[in-house]
């Protein structure tokens, strides 16, 4: 199961837990499964059918480029981070 790190201001939804484990082999499945256990999570992470444009997602330390299609491994770590641009 993937280890999902919960953004600090969303930890109210996980009872304060910094990280939780949920199944899923894609980011879409992970978020869907997260929602099942911690209702309200999906609304904070998605906008419409897509990842919120304010967010980027790192799987195993690398910012993913496939959005919700990004593969998530059995032991993967998932982080929701602010979207970034460069100069």
């Amino acid at each position: 199961m993937a280890i999902v790190y919960i953004p600090a201001l969303m930890r109210g939804l996980t009872g304060g837990a910094e990280k939780v484990t949920v199944p899923g082999s894609s980011l879409r499945q992970v978020i869907h499964n997260l929602e099942a256990v911690y209702p309200g999570m999906q609304a904070r992470l998605l906008q419409g059918d897509d990842l919120s444009p304010a967010l980027s997602v790192a799987v195993d330390g690398e910012v993913v480029r496939l959005g919700l299609l990004a593969p998530v491994g059995e032991q993967s770590e998932v982080h929701f981070l602010p979207a970034m641009s460069g100069g």
């Binding site: 790190y5 790192a58 195993d60 330390g61 690398e62 770590e77 982080h79 981070l81």
Partner: peptide, 10 residues
């Protein structure tokens, strides 16, 4: 090293 924002450095 795990950063404060979560991910681990490569």
């Amino acid at each position: 090293t795990r950063r404060i924002d979560g991910p681990i450095f490569g």
